[in-house]
Design a binder for these strands. Structure first.
Lengths: 253, 253
DNA sequence: CGTGCAATTGAGCACCGTCAAGTTATGTGG
DNA sequence: CCACATAACTTGACGGTGCTCAATTGCACG
């Protein structure tokens, strides 16, 4: 007798999202998986709106996000802020802080979040003992950088509507990778102020543009949900590169 | 008898700019220096304006810039381009292309350049055999990402004048690190179109703003030279973090 | 039923883009 | 040495995108 198991509804996230993520880049040996496993000791919870990491803080630990959303941002002297990126389950928080020994940005949970804490020493130790993992983390960092670059291009050269559409599509792609979204849409805990700070517009203008996108039958952002009324048209409008986050097989044997 | 050697006038660049750069992060053993040395086999020259790497190209080698300036950029479908970053001697070109196995951007020499070519395989081999070097390269990548992030903040949240001033100051800081500039100024092969594409403004507006900065006695951009008429005032005006690239001692013993 | 926050809408204006013309600097060929 | 071409820079006029200020609505929560 055969048991049929359906995974459709289950989130792909497990207790070791990092292993899953790095496994997409290098095929990990059991010894290497074991090393990773030992990183998952300290599970912590942070509340929405209370920073984990402050700009300028030194010798910080880093975190692996298990559940919830966070954002990393920088503050300017005049009080404005620019959100650099949002993090979703499976992402690193503050990896750069560890490698550079100083945090050049702050990190704030958007919702309540659960993380595992990894001390700088432990991480660097892992790198020294298992070079393949160092390479794998370099890959993660490169992927993050690619996203920041795409974000930069959007802010620098796209109009407000394309920019917002592109932003919502990128979130969709990332969430789909971890089983939290689809072409139909996704649950999104962001408000219009957060979006405004992320894409370099005022909240008022974000609101106006969201209305346009809704009225043109592309995307609807409402009540904590993003719904694509017409995914393909939105992709075409935003000039979105559908496959740039696709990464289905290990690149390093 | 003692030989006194003056280094003042000599460019700090040697034939191994990467060794010098990584040495700022980890203290390298002679064995590790030796491994690095073997990367420097193929020296190549590229002419200004002829791309080294094209967006979308696969399984690309990467390069270490020995002399000249380059820029990495992305093209949009409507023909606009966004320059993500400029590279100066000692910088990696296309490291992300190697790690991600696909280039998500193009790289173009701004001047004629000399580079050493490093094959993806050799680089990954170095990582496997000398984990400290892998960590060091991760550090380099993180530093690059920090610069992209700063660039993002500038485009998203700073007005045109602050943005340009900040941009010129950041170049100054980077060039000073490799002995090619000082608070007085530096030689700069960029034209106003390149600056416009880098900071997300039109060339016309860049020109207007440069005039303002000159008339307010802050910076002068002219004839391939950037001259700071009043460095401190420029720093204050641009809200520039003077020390964010400072890295005078190795962080990892 | 008030309080507070997010979303919404309008009016007016500033910054910056576009178009267009003109200037300077440099090089090329006769 | 001059005519011409080209690239980079410069300046002005005009219009639009997106910002600021301000008021209103809707909704959750006590």
């Amino acid at each position: 007798m055969v048991r049929v198991v359906y995974f459709e509804k289950e989130p792909i996230i497990d207790t070791r999202p990092l292993a899953r993520k790095l496994g997409a880049f290098v095929t990990l040996s059991t010894a290497e998986l074991d090393v990773l496993e030992r990183l998952y000791k300290r599970k912590r919870t942070f509340l929405a709106g209370h920073d984990l990491v402050h700009q300028g803080q030194e010798d910080q630990a880093c975190y692996i996000l298990l559940s919830g959303w966070a954002c990393s941002y920088k503050l300017l002297h005049d009080g404005q802020r620019q959100i650099v990126d949002f993090q979703i389950p499976g992402d690193f928080l503050g990896l750069r802080s560890v490698v550079l020994h100083v945090s050049d940005h702050s990190i704030e949970p958007v919702t309540d979040i659960e993380v595992t804490e990894v001390y700088a020493f432990d991480l660097l130790d892992v790198f020294a003992k298992t070079p393949r993992l160092a390479t794998a983390v370099l890959w993660t960092a490169s992927r993050d950088e690619a996203m920041v670059v795409e974000h930069l291009v959007g802010i620098g050269r796209r109009g407000a509507a394309e920019r917002i559409a592109h932003f919502l599509l990128e979130l969709c792609a990332r969430l789909t990778l971890v089983g939290m979204g689809s072409k139909a849409g996704y649950a999104c805990p962001l408000n219009q102020y957060l979006i405004a700070d992320a894409i370099g517009l005022s909240a008022v203008h974000v609101n106006r543009v969201l209305r346009q996108l809704r009225e043109h039958g592309m995307v609807t952002f409402r009540n904590g949900y993003v719904t694509f009324d017409n995914y393909d048209r939105t992709v075409a409008f935003a000039d979105f590169e559908v496959s740039y986050l696709d990464q289905s097989m290990p690149l390093l044997k």
